[in-house]
Design a protein around this nucleic acid. Sequence first.
DNA 1: GCGCTGCGAGAGCAGTGCTCTCGCTTGAGG
DNA 2: CCTCAAGCGAGAGCACTGCTCTCGCAGCGC
Lengths: 244, 244
Amino acid sequence: MSAALPTWHTDRMNTVRGARERARIEVTAAIKDEARRMLEAEGAAKLSLRAVARELGMVSSALYRYFPSRDELLTALIIDAYDSLGAAAEEADARALAAGSPPRARWVAVCGAVRVWALAHPHEYALIYGSPVPGYSAPVDTVGPASRVANTFIGILHAAHGSRGLALPPLPDALRPEADRMTADFAEGLPPEVTAALVVAWAQLVGLVSFELFGQFNRVVEDRAAFFSYAAGRLAHEVGLTAV
Amino acid sequence: MSAALPTWHTDRMNTVRGARERARIEVTAAIKDEARRMLEAEGAAKLSLRAVARELGMVSSALYRYFPSRDELLTALIIDAYDSLGAAAEEADARALAAGSPPRARWVAVCGAVRVWALAHPHEYALIYGSPVPGYSAPVDTVGPASRVANTFIGILHAAHGSRGLALPPLPDALRPEADRMTADFAEGLPPEVTAALVVAWAQLVGLVSFELFGQFNRVVEDRAAFFSYAAGRLAHEVGLTAV
DNA sequence: GCGCTGCGAGAGCAGTGCTCTCGCTTGAGG
DNA sequence: CCTCAAGCGAGAGCACTGCTCTCGCAGCGC
């Protein structure tokens, strides 16, 4: 997925050298595609290597030439899911930006995009924000794609901070050093109270989406769209994006 | 678990009639206890009926006399987990109340209790607030225990509302009917804007705890306790519990 | 005391992740 | 051009799972 499309007649670096390697990346992609189809149909628990192999007309052991274990396959799907969600968030922000929306509207738009993506891909969402299914796998490879949504929010807050500032109450003393460190680590240039509020809001947003998706709102919230857009507005307020 | 402890020499209703039924509830409890042990040790994915039976010295098929399927066993564990979490929340609130804490401090105490319980029982927490592991099971039986925490929060807000009122911005028109319905359904007497804010806050709280528990804060938040207490304070503010 | 009912044991089925070995094919180096 | 190692798919097999069915044994109500 992240590999470049085959560009013939380029220099020898980064290009597919032989038919063999080309077949390998094609089969790898086919396995991932079939696995994703089954994931979306039945959920991660019912995703079976043997079923994937069967559907692809190969025997199960052959599949281990491409993914050393079921968990590795799931990890690949997790990374793709992070990327897909991140792309959806970035596109929503780009559309809002192109429409001339102020930061607060961009924030709400991205929140809505996260929710819409989650509703459209419930099992992939569950894979990345539900309970970690494999034994706590996927530490380093996922961190890049995983932060795309957060980075989108950071960009919005940066723009808002530059244009007219963000009004937030001061941090409690106990959180000052932590907020300063977080700011230096991944939100350079933002006021530390904004950084802290952003991390809180990001976790809270996922909580809202998870509740809706995992059935916790059954018999509680009926008009989920209205409820979510209200919640997204309050979230915006919480990170300092005051109404219009 | 919800059955009464054996009270001998009572009237015939609600008491264990013969040694047979007594053995049945004992074995049922033993199965649940062993299953919970394995759940806490390895997680729901690795909980195996055969392993439970093996540990109990019985053969796997015998276990089906007590639980018709693995999912039913998990459902029983889910209900117990809801109850355990609910009890922890209620106890924390009772302690704060006994110490004369104002509503805001009670709110923060209950939030902290939820987090502490989750950190102490990560797999049980994942079972109830992670991705739904069985095929969307457990609809009606769980609703009672599941609402204990929420009811604790409602009680706190009720007290605050009675004593000095809760200041919240007005609801958007789109959410008025929904908020009125929610209030009538499970938060009678609360202002509708408080009800709506409460549901939002409850989902957000779970989002915060889930992020910490499921590793989403790795490489992001270091001082989790300080961060959470800051977030709980903001949550309190969001439901109208102003500082002190 | 008879007979019904609940219970545990055992065998068995279909399925799983994963390993290992065996040939075939491919493609690079001599 | 030919050889030979490496990559690959097929097949068998292991240990395990959830679940079903049958068969006897035991307890209990009549």
